[in-house]
Design a protein around this nucleic acid. Structure first.
Lengths: 257, 257
DNA sequence: CTAAACACTTCCACTCTGCGGAAGCGCCGC
DNA sequence: GCGGCGCTTCCGCAGAGTGGAAGTGTTTAG
């Protein structure tokens, strides 16, 4: 294969996960030929792998020939305690925050040069967003992302700034401006964005720290531009402090990553 | 292999999912030898498979040699829209229900002869429980389970009743008594249990129906025995009706399973 | 109505991946 | 120092997995 890695990299298992990864850009499932195309594998190979995974209930084949990710993968995925179970500790505080504000509530961690959303709470009256649990969004264009970036190692900051692209016309991508923003985030301990990820929305986010003061995650709110999110700053900080407190109280005390 | 199924069943993929399944009974991760034992596979085979899955970030190996399920599997698992995305539709209603009652809120579907929990919401003051999202519990011993069982095909009811075992001394397992309870659940459209799954707790659950009236899921509350859960019946029914209404409004209109 | 396009299934000769017991290493407890 | 435990590496080879080709069935366009 052309990946420049050990040729044993492309065994059955690797191919199976290529197939599963193909669903990441999909909303409504994929027919076999499209699945093969996205996975970058021959049709027959994908046919066989997909059939095996349907048998395992990892994939499901709908009557209209589309494949979707199956419940078995969902069940197995839930066995993961991402960031040491941070999501489970944070969830009650996120619920409190949702109740208090009725806005979208996000919890995210840094995953390389992106923000990985651990959870998103929202109500039926919350502004619709592109974020979802398990999803990745740019660090430079989101509130939680800016908090995470502000506390990232310098090489990550350099990489993100070098590759920063506009998502909306308002997305800040100029290196100098971004660096000043990140310094401001560290100084005042919160980030605020206006229409940088989605037009019509703005956000505010604060860091969640471990007992050693290391920033593990960011928690944030997203509202419409008609509602100023920083008025919820006190509530956000209370939620972040509560999460930090409960993390400190746990036997392990620290995350496993 | 001795499974009596097609011999191709035991390929690499099947073994890999055997390995992942081994984590289902685990809380704190597994060392290699324990993983091999639980997966029922030779040590060398599991070593190779586990190393491949670590490379894929599907598993993670901790400094103390334990393996845990990794964030990649979590991310891929979240691509599944179990029961057609029912959880996502139901979540705002579950949040409302949690706010109104401050108790554990469950959403479950029937998975063969067990209850599969799609989501569980709880606060820091809610009574601790064994249930978790992605987990399975017996149909005959839980509130949501009894609702699901009451609306299951007769062969499922027969199987569950035949195999019913006590989880606590209060678990109802006598066939006649169970059948009468299920008839009562159908008549009054809710189930109530007292200490059948966990001592000190009781529960109430109601059906969630699709536009054709088919019971898709059950939503329920679990409280301590000191707090009568049926006083929340009206709130539960409102939540179930709201979920049903939103399900009916969706383009697909129906679940995909 | 017909042809083209598309999605999918099955075949099968062949390659090379994946197999797992054995041997050996390192660490820990007694 | 020894035994037990967890883990890593080796390696010959059997058969699992490969994928292009051919064929089937359905849908779409003219």
């Amino acid at each position: 294969m052309s990946e420049g890695s050990p040729e044993r990299e492309r065994g059955v298992l690797a191919k199976a996960f290529d197939v599963l990864a193909a669903f990441e850009g999909s909303r409504d499932g994929l027919v076999l030929v499209e699945l093969a195309r996205r996975a970058g594998l021959p049709l027959t190979t994908v046919h066989r792998l997909a059939s095996d995974m349907v048998r395992q209930q990892v994939l499901e084949r709908l009557p209209d020939r589309r494949y979707v990710v199956g419940r078995r993968l969902w069940q197995l995925g839930l066995l993961a305690r991402v960031q040491g179970g941070l999501r489970d500790v944070a969830l009650p505080f996120m619920q409190d925050l949702y109740e208090a504000t009725r806005e979208n509530v996000h919890l995210a961690i840094r995953d390389g040069d992106q923000a990985l959303y651990l959870e998103r709470l929202h109500g039926r009256s919350s502004v619709p967003l592109v974020s979802r649990a398990g999803g990745l969004l740019p660090l430079h264009a989101t509130g939680v992302g800016k908090v995470l970036l502000a506390h990232a190692p310098p090489e990550v900051v350099d990489q993100v700034i070098k590759n920063a692209e506009k998502v909306t016309p308002y997305t800040v991508t100029e290196p100098g401006r971004l660096l000043r923003e990140l310094a401001e985030v560290r100084r005042r301990e919160y980030a605020r964005t206006v229409q940088e990820m989605t037009l019509g929305t703005c956000s505010v986010a604060v860091p969640v720290r471990d007992p050693d003061g290391i920033v593990l995650a960011a928690i944030g709110l997203v509202t419409t531009t008609r509602r100023e999110p920083t008025r919820h700053l006190a509530a956000l900080r209370m939620a972040a402090a509560g999460i930090a407190r409960d993390l400190a109280r746990r036997p392990g005390g620290k995350s496993t990553t």
